[in-house]
Design a protein around this nucleic acid. Structure first.
Length: 324
DNA sequence: AATGCCTTCAACCGCGGGTGT
DNA sequence: CACACCCGCGGTTGAAGGCAT
């Protein structure tokens, strides 16, 4: 268990805190009153959690359940605010917290949901089992906003959202499709193996074959979510449409100039091929159509965007593709 | 090897809303 | 109604580790 803190804001600084709101006090009380209160209230710890504190919190919650965080903190003997305990549990110690990089599936979902809901991190997190709002928020701020900056636009701007739709999300859809293919190949192989075992009456080995097949499929897939419950893609979502194969046709009125440029870039071998497909097939599909963007201003911007892909800023796009 | 800058992310802060008295 | 308490959310901070020079 990764209770050892390798990172974390602030040192472990004992500090007097307004326990109810987790706020540092900002004067107000007379010195004598402060001394009296300090005598009544235990010194609170801040900063990274220790292994011992983690154990105490986990064991207490295992015995008594979560909730009532302030009283929980006191009852467990932790010199932490209730808020701090809640945060530690929800973001780190909870058994179902998923660790590691976001899968392409998850990235797609985040992009899609953020397009709809904006910075409603907790709401977005509800649709990503095992992921916390804090993690998603950090992902957005450190990765997505970084690339928005590289593309010289605001992450919340329509332009950046369009760049996500036309260039980023189709690529991720391809990436997950590739993972799906490999996953199903492993599943099929495992199924064949199991068929043979059953035919031979070798029931004892069926379970092992099943486990091995699932493990191989999971290992081969960039997305462990593919091996578990699929996410629910809500009706009418762009992601669902992309998944369904509508591709760019849905969001562009025809292929458009950008897709043609993308196709050209692909022909010249300028596109990264992390998914193994070279140019995203969704983008390629878009390139096959004809027409213009509905928003003429966007059309001009996408042209500049694509120019930068083809000329100087390829590295920036490669960074984006690497994010799967 | 030493140094400084950059990136990541756990933890904190401030605030608002809900609930109980 | 007023107040206190509690919880959860979104924004921000800063230490640790990675990377470039």
């Amino acid at each position: 268990m990764a209770a050892t803190q390798s990172r974390g804001g602030g040192g472990v600084v004992p500090v007097q805190v307004d326990e109810e709101h987790g706020r540092r006090r900002q004067g107000g009380a007379a010195p004598q009153e402060e001394e009296e209160e300090a005598a009544e209230k235990p010194e609170l710890r801040r900063g990274p959690w220790t292994v011992d504190e983690d154990h105490i919190l986990v064991n207490y919650i295992a015995d008594n359940g979560e909730g009532r965080w302030n009283s929980l903190a006191r009852a467990a003997g932790l010199k932490r605010t209730g808020k701090s305990c809640r945060l530690r549990w929800l973001n780190y110690l909870r058994p179902d917290v998923k660790r590691g990089n976001f899968t392409a599936d998850e990235q797609l979902l985040i992009l899609d949901l953020h397009t709809r809901w904006g910075n409603r991190w907790s709401k977005i997190a509800q649709h990503l089992p095992g992921r916390t709002d804090n993690e998603i928020k950090n992902y957005w701020r450190t990765r997505v906003q970084k690339h928005a900056k590289q593309l010289n636009c605001d992450a919340s701007s329509k332009r950046f959202k369009d760049a996500m739709r036309y260039l980023w999300m189709p690529h991720l859809v391809d990436a997950t499709a590739t993972a799906d293919d490999e996953y199903h190949q492993h599943q099929a192989a495992a199924a064949g193996n199991i068929d043979g075992l059953l035919a031979g009456g070798d029931v004892d080995h069926v379970q092992h074959a099943l486990a091995a097949g699932v493990a191989a499929a999971m290992a081969s897939s960039s997305s462990d979510s593919l091996a578990s419950e699929p996410y629910s893609y809500e009706d009418g979502g762009l992601l669902a449409s992309l998944r369904a194969g509508d591709d760019m046709q849905l969001v562009m009125s025809g292929g458009g100039w950008a897709a043609a440029q993308a196709q050209e870039a692909n022909d010249q071998g300028l596109w990264p091929s992390s998914s193994g497909h070279g140019l995203s097939s969704s983008v390629q599909a878009a390139a096959g159509g004809a027409g213009q963007f509905e928003d003429p201003e966007l059309s001009g911007w996408v042209q500049g965007f694509s120019d930068s892909i083809i000329t100087g800023n390829l590295w920036a796009l490669e960074e984006i593709w690497k994010m799967q």
